[in-house]
Simulated assay, not measured.
Amino acid sequence: MVAQKFVVDLNKPLVFQVGHLGEAYDDWVHDPIVSKEGPRFFQSGFLELFTRTAWWVIPTVWVPVASWFISNSVKSGLPSLDVALLVFLGIFVWTLAEYTLHRFLFHVKTKSYWGNTLHYLLHGCHHKHPMDSYRLVFPPVAAAILALPIWNLVKLICTPSVAPAVFGGILLGYVMYDCTHYYLHHGQPKSDVPKSLKKYHLNHHYRLQNYGFGITSPLWDKVFGTVPPPQSKGDAKRR
Rank of each mutant, 00 (worst) to 15 (best):
L47M: 14
M131N: 13
S73E: 01
H107P: 07
H102E: 02
S73T: 03
G115M: 13
L96R: 02
H102M: 05
H102T: 02
V154C: 02
L89D: 00
A66T: 03
L122V: 10
T159F: 03
L171N: 03
L47T: 08
H127S: 11
P140I: 03
T51E: 13
S112Y: 10
F167I: 05
G169R: 00
L81Q: 11
T51G: 11
S44W: 13
K75M: 09
A163W: 00
A163H: 03
K128W: 08
G168N: 04
E48N: 13
W151R: 06
D82I: 12
Y99M: 02
A144G: 12
P160L: 07
K111S: 15
H129I: 05
H119D: 08
S67K: 01
F42W: 14
V137T: 12
E98W: 02
L78I: 04
V83C: 00
P59W: 01
G168C: 05
N116S: 04
F46N: 10
V63I: 15
P139Q: 07
K75L: 11
W68H: 12
H129C: 13
T51A: 14
L47Y: 12
L146N: 04
W151V: 03
I157C: 10
L153E: 02
G115S: 12
G124D: 07
R103T: 09
